[in-house]
Amino acid sequence: MSAATIRRRGSMGRGRRAARIALHAWCGLVFFFLVLPLVVVFPISFSSSAYLQFPPPGYSLRWYREFLADPNWVDAAWRSVLIGSVTAVAATILGTLLAISLVRGTYPGKGAVEQLVMAPIALPSIVYSVAAYQLFSTLHLVGSWQGVAVAHTVHALPLVVVVVGASLRTIDVSTEMAAQGLGASWFTAVRRITLPQIRPALVSAAFIAFISSFDELVIAMFLGGINLTLPKKMFDSILYEIDPTIAAVSVLQIALVVLVLVVIGRFGSGVRPTS
């Protein structure tokens, strides 16, 4: 290698290194920005003070006790878990059927169905809430948890279809064919061969649907009436009575998400299709 090439490589390396350092510094700042809010709620939730003080003057579990002792908080939390679970089950079942239909089927109007299914993603919750209110009040669903679950299912449906559809596209269609050739009916082939292969996606989709409902405020605010969900209760308490209870709730909620992510990792890391 000549001296000239070495020199040129050296200078190029320096320029590149400077760019790399700048990139890493920038990303470090952005990561800090992203994680910062999650980090601050932890110490505050363990504060012994009655006010939002940082750093807290002392540490205690009083705000967790406060949360668990207040039936308003606990009721709201259970209601949200209930609505989220129903949403997750309903959206995963309906969304998986839709995904199979859209990925595997060929029928007139399929494009229109696809657009219809995706539409709720782009529609702001506020618009949907105002629209649904009329219908739901006619059906006497306003103020019931069932009504909120139905509306949440509509919002979660496109998320399920995207996740399950993407997974369906990666698995080998000929396995379904092979199963039928070996004596399985279409239904048996789907149940025993196709669905187990996309199980990680089904688990993820159910989780995403659950979180999308569990975290949803606007629809629940409009359609939930006096039956507060956890986000609505948090919203009210942030607006009117800032105290560290909400930080304790936040930590519990983060913990729940992490727990479910771990569960997903456990069940989601199952079999992947051979390439």
């Binding site: 080998d172 000929s174 199963a179 039928q180 070996l182 292969q197 299709p273």
Partner: peptide, 28 residues
């Protein structure tokens, strides 16, 4: 329908069921 023909087929890419063991594949 293919399920009732009683024909065995080997696919070009084998189409083995990736989530089932060899024994369960053959038992299917």
């Amino acid at each position: 329908p293919p399920a009732r023909r009683g024909i065995g087929m080997v696919f070009q890419n084998y189409a083995l069921f990736p989530h089932l063991t060899v024994a369960r594949n053959i038992a299917f």
